[in-house]
Design a protein around this nucleic acid. Structure first.
Lengths: 335, 335
DNA sequence: TTGTAAGCGTTATCAC
DNA sequence: GTGATAACGCTTACAA
């Protein structure tokens, strides 16, 4: 069942059939009907491989995201990104290929990247593994448009869609300040990626803006997004007399909550807490957690939007799009 | 940069080049060297479209999974399935295309299923939306092997990889029984999918085995995997005097935990709890939650294994593979 | 050990 | 409005 079959069935040429099916040139009413009928009858679906050979387009894009061990909420975040991307791409008839790399081993970034060895992807959505453009430069060898998602890299001029990490961190810090806290600790990751960097920078900036001293003992930057790191970090800053904690990652926040619980510390009376990323479990902590909510799905959708524009040969009006994150106010921040 | 370029560079024929590159026929040492050198020089990568036209294989499979709103742990589960599949497929040089459908609207299953309109997928991994084979029958029109993941359907003889839902439910119930509980409630979903069915069946079976009466007031089957449904269900079974609750889904379990918390009920002294699916937050409930742990990643990996066998023309030795789920014992079950 | 040539299912150019 | 025909880049009989 090919275009040829339809040509034979209708007595028309394959040229006419092709044009009729693609709407690429006027075809008589009568031919159109015949062709549509025949196509329906044999349940015709175009052969993508053949189309690709001629058009050099597959209407397929790849998304490259980090993945960690099972049941980690970071996975959940990137699934939402993926799903947002998928829904937008689907609207334009594009398929989505997934590639993952281990978050903890950025150096393995390219090792499993079989996608890049095949010449048939129209574009790429990429969550970069590090801050260095050089680490992803090879990806541009594919010769297709690339849009960064969630994280930027130093150098390079790739389009980008991400959260306003710095601003929302400042906002969270001010809420803690307004609740009367003056020894606000920062628990984050020491990872070489832009979200970690921006959140940390937001913390430093707001200290200065509020005239608070920078106390290194209140700053804990851990080397993994894990519960145990969160607990360890919480122990340290509590030991340094923190009266509030901003946890810049959901796993670290979870560890923080657990440590507070184990030490029997009252939240927010003794220590206030604001976390990053808003999962279902933030409702069952005692008290319910005030947390930053990112719109992961919209990030994926918007990045796809930019990519589709590039695929259409248009230059997007903005190279960088920030998807606003917002505080979900519950009770752990105090007041 | 094609095989033809290499042929010209080396003075050999495209046939020889093709065979050399694919190892499909002996080639002299000298030719081999020349070809490899030339290939490296022009950074040759085969054109998949052209290969596909000849071989009718794309080395690409699709995975079709449900997706719900953002930040839902069900997404996390299926991401792990996806990631497990991805890692196995990668080992065999296959790419993975993702398609999602809204869990809550099974009737929309095919509406976004653009994959099926394209004739170029080698196989399909499918989490079916309902129990009815008829609802997915059209997928077999693609004419490629299909492997079911996580859920079976009635009728049809498709290979399947899923958890041992019934058995692990029985196991969990027995733990509650051994902790002295006799009024054990079941909170689950009333969804038309096999995981919901099997877990419910496990509950009924074990009641009989243990000689416990079946009390309809202790059974709550809700119509959504949501926290509020979990709370509602918990209210109902608590009202009916439950001394233990088995929550057959993570969101429902979360709601249950919250309701117990709000009512100030002591776990496990007053009411024992065991949940399904083991997320990070199960550690910070008070007390830490005993829960069923599924190996989502292994399910994805094993399903891919079966699919790869089918793609190789082999019939897998078993049509159904059960990936054992196990209890992670913490404290909420009592004793 | 190597080469010639057909053909996969489309699209696109050109001519009628 | 329509049709021949070349071309896309590869695999694979068949031939030497």
């Amino acid at each position: 069942m090919s275009i040829k079959t339809i040509a034979e069935m209708t007595g028309l040429s394959i040229t006419t059939v092709s044009h009729a099916l693609n709407g690429t040139r006027p075809v008589s009413q009568r031919s159109m009907e015949l062709i549509n009928e025949a196509a329906a009858q044999i349940n015709y679906r175009p052969n993508l491989a053949a189309q690709m050979m001629k058009t050099h387009r597959s209407r397929t894009v790849a998304i490259i995201i980090p993945a960690t061990e099972q049941n980690n909420s970071t996975n959940c975040f990137f699934f939402d990104v993926l799903n947002g991307a998928k829904s937008r791409l689907q609207e334009s008839g594009y398929e989505l290929i997934v590639s993952t790399y281990p978050e903890s081993r950025p150096q393995d970034f390219f090792s499993g990247m079989s996608i890049l060895h095949r010449r048939w992807i129209d574009g790429i959505l990429l969550v970069p593994p590090t801050l260095r453009y050089e680490d992803i430069a090879r990806i541009e060898d594919c010769g297709v448009p690339v849009v960064l998602v969630d994280r930027w890299v130093k150098g390079g001029k790739l389009p980008l869609v991400c959260s306003n990490n710095r601003e929302v961190t400042v906002e969270a810090m001010k809420v803690l300040y307004q609740a009367g806290r003056r020894r606000i600790a920062f628990i984050g990751a020491d990872f070489p990626n832009s979200t970690a960097v921006e959140r940390y920078q937001g913390y430093l900036d707001v200290l200065e803006e509020l005239g608070l001293p920078r106390d290194e003992l209140l700053i804990c930057r851990m080397d993994a997004y894990s519960m145990s790191c969160g607990m360890e970090a919480a122990r340290r800053v509590l030991g340094a007399g923190a009266d509030a904690i901003f946890a810049a990652n959901s796993m670290l926040c979870l560890g923080t909550v657990k440590e507070l619980q184990e030490q029997g510390i009252h939240v927010p009376e003794q220590v206030a807490v604001i976390g990053f990323d808003n999962y279902e479990w933030t409702e069952i902590t005692n008290p319910p957690l005030t947390a930053v909510t990112q719109n992961a799905s919209l990030m994926g959708r918007t990045a796809s939007e930019l990519l589709l524009q590039l695929l259409d040969g248009k230059q997007p009006e903005q190279r960088v799009v920030r998807i606003p994150a917002a505080l979900t106010i519950r009770q752990s921040h105090g007041l």
